[in-house]
């Protein structure tokens, strides 16, 4: 049982932001900050904002 994901579901509900938060946590576990950034860059693109996906 993944408590973080479970709590995300409770706090965010079934929303786009909830799905984003789940993806961010999974991305961090799989690839650390750069993977999180990649997910956020993609999310921001859907909001019409371009952010450079380069390294910090």
């Amino acid at each position: 049982m993944d408590i973080l994901i479970e709590e995300v579901g409770k706090v965010f509900g079934h929303t786009d932001e909830g799905r984003l938060a789940e993806r961010l946590i999974s991305a961090y576990r799989a690839g650390g900050p750069s993977a999180v950034k990649a997910v956020l860059v993609e999310y921001l693109k859907t909001l019409g904002v371009d952010v450079e996906a380069g390294e910090d």
Binding site: Y28, P33, V36
Partner: peptide, 9 residues
């Protein structure tokens, strides 16, 4: 870690 990246963005 996620919040830190969110803050940087």
């Amino acid at each position: 870690g996620v919040v830190k990246t969110l803050t940087s963005l």
